[in-house]
Design a protein around this nucleic acid. Structure first.
Length: 783
DNA sequence: GTATTATCTAAGTCT
DNA sequence: TAGATAATAC
């Protein structure tokens, strides 16, 4: 079946591929086959879900047909491919070629100021909610005009007490446009505008992309669907690959309906079903099938395997999230020993990034190397965003978000008041804030001379970088920016450990840019000069400039980030289930299988949300090749509070005879009882347990169920009020201490529970103060 | 205008 | 719990 699908190169093709059925292999061979048949690599467009997937597929194709051919393939995510096309065609839409791509943070920040300017309450119009509403509109190809004229949407918005969303959308759009910026959704939305309003452009790309392939088709949204449909209209050599059971991006507008539409759009469609799983054991495949069968909405599919039966799925049950971490780490350690497995054969998958902490801690203490994918990625760190904001402003001076971020970083005496004045002025003359700065030599805009000088100095500095943009390579310019702006110095002078690591991160970024200029990184798509085989060739400057670097990083995804691990290190992988899509590992641990976590609490309201969670669990299960382990904990810390947890309903959906359940009344695993296990050792509980960390949402009598009653007696009386004591550590009632600000004084009272022990001190100069000992930095003068 | 401290608030998955 | 914002002192 794989071969048939790969050979069917002409006409519309749909491949419904179950998990582990080798769809990447089919795509790879299909493209290799096209190339062998003499199809020009420039005429093949292949859309993948991550850039990493594109890169890997390209490498595999290169092995089959040689690097020269493979290099010219047009491969990447929807966003990166069409961002590239938009840069070529930007001027038709009124954007400069160097438009900025706003990430979610930028977008929310714009929204925040829009909401404020409209005088609306940001408690009702929460930027994140507004953002997702606008995002949904764009993904359904609704402009702000259409949004405002759509009666259904308008009554929806009135019903949810947010009638002015349309206005916000309008202003948001205008501001992004004025900043020469597109958000993620604009990349697709504007591609649609481009293909709709410019028939010659559409014609050009239709004839360029004679063969189109789309991977993970079940996760495309309406906007993407329309793009593909239009581009494929001339030749209809379109092949989509997908699995409805693995559709997990509904929240982003992904629509399984696209698969159904596909059948309607192309009546002569050839469909191939890949149902044999080559990845997992029988146990794992059966478990996955039994889980997914609980979904009502799904296509008929029958995934099976010839692989061995395999071990049962082990269920780990623990008392706390920390113990869960320990049990998983222990199990990995044991498996490594008994099966002679390498670290990289293991993956730990969780529903939310926040769950990684307890796992990390346990792995670290057991000296098991690991790597976390996602979470706070390198490019989201403050110091990196700061310096990148300089890059952005140099490349696109209209970029208001970048401007706001750095106008006073490092501090140069241009504060909030000045910034507000500038924005008002800019709004008044309908120009960008940058344009106001450029005007300063001619008009004072009512600003006083001191401020004007400071602003002009800043503008001059940025201008000096702009001059270098096309004369210096990326590394040189980036280095100049880091040095001349004072960022490096600022971070260097910060002697805290965080400051040092920030400094190192900047250095790491500069190193990355250096690699880029020396062309060590493999570019995913062909450089735009030979994109049109000469047709568009600009004077080919060999210079790798900063704007080219920025194009490369704007759309990096979490899955793409293994660049830093060049040595292909042997490490355990930690990631969310979403991030694990498309990957496979011999040993997989799915952790945190608890109600309200997996399935997520937010998915419990509607059937379709719950079904998406179930598909997510299906994806998690099917990542495993040899052995699957699942775990849940009976209590878990969430935002500082301890919560009781129930096992996930998904566990019950796995056939019981496939499971190896934990024995009741016995600890699931021997764990290190002295650390990280709140009530294990006599004194260590104090670190984690105190009056203030009792769950706040539940009444005190029932809440601390997992905290043994005898602990209460140690630091609190029966009413739960803290007791006064004679001494805490070296501090004794009546002893004299010195505080660096308050001077000397005498301790008159000691109270509180670790770690929040407090002392009341009568200072000679300023009188009585109550200080938390942990923070107070007191020096004992007389015991 | 800047730096420090107190208070509030959100809390999910990703391009 | 941690990040963002508001309040305060300088």
């Amino acid at each position: 079946m794989q071969k048939e699908a790969a050979l069917q190169t002409e006409g519309p093709v749909m491949i419904l591929a179950g998990a582990g059925s080798g769809k990447t292999r089919v795509l790879t061979y299909r493209i290799a086959h096209l190339l062998n048949k003499g199809v020009d690599a420039f005429n093949i467009l292949s859309l993948t879900f991550t850039n990493k997937a594109a890169r890997e597929m390209k490498e595999r194709i290169a092995k089959l047909v040689g690097n020269n051919e493979a290099r010219n393939l047009w491969m990447g995510t929807f966003h990166s491919v069409f961002a590239k096309i938009l840069r070529i065609e930007a001027e038709k839409l009124g954007y400069p070629t160097q438009f900025t791509i706003y990430d979610t943070d930028d977008a929310k920040s714009v929204l925040k100021s829009v909401i404020k300017d409209l005088g609306l309450d940001d408690k009702i119009y929460k930027p994140s909610t507004v953002y997702s509403r606008i995002s949904a509109a764009k993904n359904n190809l609704l402009s702000w005009q259409e949004y405002m004229n759509n009666t259904e949407i308008q009554s929806d918005d009135r019903a949810s007490a947010k009638p002015r969303l349309g206005e916000i959308y309008k202003l948001y759009y205008e501001r992004c446009f004025r900043s020469s910026a597109m958000d993620f959704d604009d990349l697709l939305f504007n591609t649609n505008i481009l293909l709709r309003n410019f028939p010659d452009v559409l014609h050009k790309y239709q004839h360029k992309f004679k063969y189109i392939m789309v991977d993970e088709y079940q996760d495309t949204n309406f906007s993407q669907y329309v793009i593909v449909k239009k581009l494929a209209a001339a030749f209809e050599n379109i092949c989509v690959v997908g699995d409805d059971a693995q559709s997990i991006y509904g929240f982003r507008g992904a629509n399984i309906q696209n698969i159904l539409n596909f059948e309607k759009d192309y009546p002569e469609l050839k469909t191939f079903k890949l149902e044999q799983n080559y990845r997992s054991t029988k146990v794992i495949v059966k478990a996955a099938n039994s889980v997914i069968s609980n979904n009502k909405e799904q296509f008929q599919k029958d995934v099976w395997t010839q692989n061995i039966q395999g071990e049962k799925i082990k269920v780990i049950k623990t008392l706390t999230d920390n113990e869960e971490g320990w049990s998983v780490a222990n199990s990995i350690f044991e498996t490594k020993m008994t099966e002679q497995a390498r670290n990289k054969a293991f993956a730990i998958l969780y529903r939310t990034n926040a769950q990684s902490r307890s796992l990390e801690e346990a792995l670290r203490k057991m000296s098991i190397p690991y790597k976390i994918y996602g979470g706070l990625s390198f490019y989201k760190r403050k110091e990196i965003k700061d310096i990148i904001a300089y890059f952005r402003l140099v490349i696109n001076p209209a970029d208001e978000e970048a401007f706001k971020r750095i106008i006073n970083y490092p501090a140069r005496g241009i504060g909030q008041t000045t910034l507000e004045k500038l924005t008002v002025i800019a709004e008044g003359v309908q120009k960008s804030v940058w344009a106001i700065l450029e005007d300063l030599p001619h008009t004072d805009y009512g600003l006083n001379a001191g401020i004007r000088q400071k602003l002009w100095d800043f503008a001059t500095m940025i201008k000096s970088f702009q001059v270098q943009l096309h004369t210096k390579d990326a590394f040189e310019l980036a280095g100049n920016i880091a040095a001349h702006t004072g960022i490096l110095k600022e971070l260097y002078n910060e002697k805290t450990p965080e400051g040092v690591s920030r400094y190192e991160n900047i250095q790491e970024l500069l190193n990355g840019i250096k690699d880029f200029t020396e062309n060590k990184t493999l570019r995913i798509s062909p450089p735009s000069e030979n994109f049109f085989e000469g047709e568009f060739s600009t004077e080919t400057t060999a210079l790798k400039t900063l704007d080219l670097f920025m194009e490369d990083i704007a759309l990096l995804t979490d899955a793409d980030e293994d660049v830093e691990d060049k040595d292909n290190a042997d490490k355990v992988s930690l990631m969310t289930v979403h991030a694990a899509k498309g990957l496979e590992f011999p040993y997989v641990y799915v952790v945190g299988l608890e109600e309200n976590l997996f399935p997520s609490q937010m998915a419990l309201n509607s059937r379709s949300d719950l079904e998406e969670e179930r598909r997510l669990f299906y994806v998690a299960i099917t990542r495993a090749e040899k052995k699957l382990t699942v775990s849940y904990s009976q209590s878990r810390y969430k935002y500082g509070n301890l919560f009781q947890c129930e096992p996930s309903r998904f566990l019950e959906e796995i056939d019981e005879d496939l499971l190896e359940k934990p024995q009741e009344n016995k600890p699931a695993k021997k764990v290190n009882l002295t650390e990280d296990f709140p009530w294990g050792g006599g004194s260590s509980f104090k670190k984690k347990t105190s009056a203030s960390t009792y769950p706040s949402k539940t009444p005190t009598p029932s809440a601390p169920k997992v905290i043994p009653a005898n602990l209460k007696k140690i630091n609190t009386n029966e009413a739960g009020i803290t007791q006064n004591v004679e001494s805490i550590g070296d501090y004794v009632l009546g002893c004299k201490v010195e505080h660096e600000k308050f001077g000397t004084g005498e301790i008159t009272k000691l109270e509180g529970i670790s770690p929040n022990e407090k002392a009341t001190i009568l200072f000679e100069e300023i009188g009585e103060k109550v200080l938390i000992l942990r923070f107070a930095k007191l020096r004992i003068i007389e015991p």
